Computed example of a mutant assay.
Amino acid sequence: MAQGGHWQQVSSGSRQCSTPAPNPPAVVIGNRYALLDTGKKESPPTVKEEKPRTPKAGRSAATTANRKRRVVVVGDSLLRGTEAPICRPDISPQEVCCLPGARIRDVTEALSRIIQPSDYYPMLLIYVGTNDTARCDTEQIKSDYRALGVRVKGFGAQVVFSSILPVKGRGLGRDRCIMEVNAWLRRWCRQEGFGFLDHGMLLQEGLLGRDDVHLSRRGKTLFGHRLANLVRRALN
């Protein structure tokens, strides 16, 4: 992560709010653009049998109605370029908090600045883990996910974890690490009551950028629409 940077939190409304933070750089927000034609019809994203945790019982409808409603998608730099399909002005406030270079622990720490107790969060979607798999330490990754799970349980929101997207040309060790973590993440989400968005082998030829880790423009469009479709389906 870059030192001395900052991150910005951007919503779909007309006003932009930024909060200084010690580490992550700024969120990048883009204009909405149409899904590029890949030549194949993509099926909508699906959440496996693992159901998201619903808001805690005892919260009255009146109390919820008086609080600002915020849907937050948070994670690392793979979220850059997904803002357009997610943050649409014709729906309730939805935000993408992109923390370039972030690892699982960084997201856990950043949530204390992103989540406001005065607001109501019907859904929290998390994508993180790509940077952690570079070390191929699956036990440490699992431990960091567990700590993140403890943190998000107190928010009273539907929480969904996304599977880690595959990378290319980083060796068989990293490929096996990603597959192992995704298999464990699916089981763990079921046990903890979180939702799990499984992208499977989403990345086809042309969906990865030149570095074979981040997404190409077409890949960002597809990934962004899958996340946006999940959010809309979960809230309807």
Rank of each mutant, 00 (worst) to 15 (best):
T221S: 15
N31W: 03
V73R: 01
E109Q: 12
T54A: 13
L125G: 04
V231Y: 01
L111I: 12
S118E: 11
F161T: 09
T54W: 09
E180W: 03
E95F: 01
P55C: 07
A147D: 15
S14T: 15
R217K: 13
G156D: 10
S60W: 01
Q16F: 06
R190C: 09
C98E: 14
S112W: 03
D212H: 10
R80G: 05
N131Q: 11
Q9C: 09
D198S: 09
L111R: 12
V74Q: 03
A2Y: 02
I141N: 13
K168R: 09
P117D: 14
G5W: 03
P25K: 12
M1C: 11
V160H: 02
T138W: 00
D119P: 00
T130A: 12
G129V: 01
T138Q: 03
F223G: 08
S12A: 14
R70C: 07
L208H: 07
G4R: 06
M201D: 04
K153D: 15
G193C: 12
L197D: 13
V167P: 00
G101Q: 06
E50A: 15
V47W: 04
G4I: 05
G193H: 05
P93W: 02
R15L: 15
F155T: 11
V159M: 03
G224D: 11
S216E: 06
P85V: 09
T64N: 10
